[in-house]
Amino acid sequence: MGMNEALFTFSVRQADSALVLAQRLCEWCGHGPVLEEDIAMSNMGLDLIGQSRGYYSYAANIEGGGRSEDDLAFHRNEREFMNRCLVEQPNGDFGHTMMRSFFYSAFSALQHRELRSSTDETISGVAQKAWKELQYHARHTGQWIVRLGDGTEESHQRIQSSLDELWSFTEELFDTDRIDEQLVSEGIICDIGLLKPEWDVMVNDVLHAAGLVVPPKGYRSKGGMHGVHTEYLGHMLSEMQYLPRAYPDARW
């Protein structure tokens, strides 16, 4: 695969994960349990939309075929989305949303910490900002997990169920393929497999402080990066993409 094609695919994968999670977080807008958390979720969503724009516009630039960042976000179908399956999972209750974001932001923060030293100027630029933002997403969501796990019997039981349900989607975060290997060998991206031990420590520290128990190894998701998704993504996209598809000429 040519370098540009590999860079394009990597950028779209990065953008897709950030955008899909942003859309999920913004589904909470107006429904948060308290005003501050409503704002917090939309704020985090906004950061992620910003990060996805950085990657989408770079991908559109590399492709150079006239597709814009908006075309990439709003005019591709489910099977063309290459996000990790974790981020498309439905919101569930507030704790469930915190758990999903925590897994992703701890991962993505570590990845972007490394991408800051990418030999690719654009990726390293996007990473500098993403690293700052994802750290406080991981703190905010991690601290909620502790509060809920160490809270009431009800909150503990509910956040434990979220852990049980979402845990099987975490391994996929670290999946790579030949495109990644190619970019790693060029010094453009980092080998995310090397970050897994650090992610494990952070996640275990939080789950331990919350008094939660990691479920036994069982099913694990895979394939999001190749467009194979759970049933939820298509439904989410049909809502997210509705306006630009129904009114293709609509402008801000």
Partner: peptide, 8 residues
Amino acid sequence: RFHPLDSD
């Protein structure tokens, strides 16, 4: 240092 349990 980056750790989710550290206060920011």
